[in-house]
Amino acid sequence: MKPKKVRKKFSYYMANVGITGLVLFAILPLFWTFYVSLREEVSITRYPTMLTTKNLSFLAYTHIWRDTNFPVLIRNSLIVSSMTVLLSLVLGTAAGYALSRAKFKGRQGVLLSYLVIRLIPGVLLLVPIYIMMYKFHLLDTYFGLTFAYTTFTLPATIWLMKGFFDSLPPDLENAARVDGCSRLGAMWRISLPLVLPGLAATGTLTAITAWNDVLFAIMLTSSNKSRTWPVGLREMIGEFQLPWQLLTATAIMSLLPVVIGFALVGRKMVAGITAGSLKE
């Protein structure tokens, strides 16, 4: 019994060490980015790895918010991300429910086609999407970016929502239909409230994809009318300059909406991911 207890205690400590290492590996870069954003540009250039508490200030954040177009870019990113989440969830929920409940010939082929689309690198579709947006006069618009992002977020949304609906027993909907509810009514009144955690998880993943994209934002926008924050961050880099203070401050500020979003839907997101892995 004693050797077993020793082995158990050793494995317990090793697990804690591993978890602590992973946490530090994830958090330390964020702390370092925040620390660099507080330093002066001259100090960063001369002593990039120096740790000091002298001359730390939030001047970079004030400058970015007051003297640059960053607030406009953040607003554009919020609008585009919200539109992408809304469109993906509406279409993906309907398609996922249909593929989960309906049994028809070619159903597996449809699911496989969505998976294949998701596996195609975005750069391969960049030129066709650009031509299509140009012909429909959607360049440099919110809708152009939203449709481009939905092209890649919708297949994953369909697969995720199908998994969430598969985890629900069909008997609940059948009982509602016996009581006079239509198929659409049963989905709206019975199934959707039960997969709200799944909707939160899927919406969060979709929002992060749209929020962080830079490839399509560069190609499909040409002005601050619809340009998003990753493009603005890239434009801060000049040919002969690399303003680390402003770049790191912008990166930290761009994380705030994501952190707030996780704080609001974090529990539902975890519950949704867990529910999607189970099937009654």
Score class of each variant (00 low, 15 high):
Tyr13Trp: 15
Tyr13Leu: 15
Tyr13Met: 13
Tyr13Ser: 02
Met14Phe: 11
Ala15His: 11
Ala15Cys: 13
Ala15Ser: 12
Asn16Trp: 15
Val17Ser: 13
Gly18Leu: 08
Gly18Phe: 13
Thr20Asp: 00
Thr20Glu: 01
Thr20His: 06
Thr20Ser: 15
Thr20Gln: 06
Gly21Gln: 01
Gly21Arg: 01
Gly21Pro: 03
Val23Pro: 01
Leu24Lys: 01
Leu24His: 00
Phe25Gly: 00
Phe25His: 01
Ala26Gly: 07
Ala26Arg: 02
Ala26Ser: 15
Ile27Tyr: 05
Leu28Trp: 09
Leu28Cys: 09
Leu28His: 03
Pro29Asn: 06
Leu30Ala: 05
Leu30Thr: 10
Leu30Asn: 05
Leu30Phe: 12
Leu30Ile: 15
Leu30Lys: 09
Phe31Asn: 00
Phe31Leu: 13
Trp32His: 02
Thr33Ser: 06
Thr33Cys: 13
Phe34Lys: 09
Phe34Leu: 15
Tyr35Trp: 10
Tyr35Met: 06
Ser37Trp: 10
Ser37Gly: 05
Ser37His: 05
Ser37Ala: 07
Arg39Tyr: 03
Glu40Tyr: 08
Val42Phe: 12
Val42Pro: 03
Val42Ala: 14
Ser43Ala: 14
Ser43Tyr: 03
Ser43Glu: 14
Thr45Gly: 13
Thr45Arg: 10
Thr45Phe: 08
Thr45Cys: 01
Tyr47Val: 09
Tyr47Trp: 11
Tyr47Ile: 06
Tyr47Gln: 13
Pro48Thr: 03
Thr49Cys: 12
Thr49Asp: 12
Thr49Tyr: 03
Thr52Met: 12
Lys54Ile: 12
Ser57Gln: 06
Ser57Ala: 10
Leu59Pro: 00
Ala60Ser: 14
Tyr61Ile: 00
Tyr61Met: 06
Tyr61Gly: 01
Thr62Pro: 00
Thr62Tyr: 07
Thr62Met: 08
Arg66Lys: 09
Thr68Pro: 03
Phe70Pro: 02
Phe70Glu: 05
Phe70Arg: 00
Phe70Ile: 14
Val72Arg: 14
Val72Ser: 05
Leu73Pro: 00
Ile74Met: 10
Arg75Ile: 08
Asn76Ala: 11
Leu78Asn: 03
Leu78Phe: 08
Leu78Arg: 00
Val80Cys: 13
Val80Tyr: 07
Val80Ile: 15
Ser81Arg: 02
Ser81Cys: 11
Ser82Cys: 15
Ser82Tyr: 01
Met83Cys: 15
Met83Ala: 04
Met83Ile: 13
Met83Ser: 03
Thr84Leu: 05
Val85His: 04
Val85Glu: 04
Val85Ile: 14
Ser88Leu: 01
Leu89Asp: 06
Leu89Val: 06
Leu89Glu: 07
Val90Ser: 12
Val90Cys: 14
Leu91Ala: 12
Gly92Arg: 00
Gly92Val: 01
Thr93Ile: 04
Thr93Ala: 12
Thr93Tyr: 00
Ala94Ser: 13
Gly96Asp: 10
Tyr97Gln: 03
Tyr97Ile: 04
Ala98Ile: 15
Ala98Lys: 09
Leu99Val: 05
Leu99Phe: 11
Leu99Ala: 00
Leu99Asn: 05
Ser100Tyr: 08
Lys103Asp: 10
Lys103Ala: 11
Lys103Met: 11
Lys103Pro: 05
Gly106Phe: 08
Arg107Tyr: 02
Gln108Val: 11
Gln108Leu: 12
Gly109Tyr: 09
Gly109Asp: 03
Val110Glu: 01
Leu111Met: 15
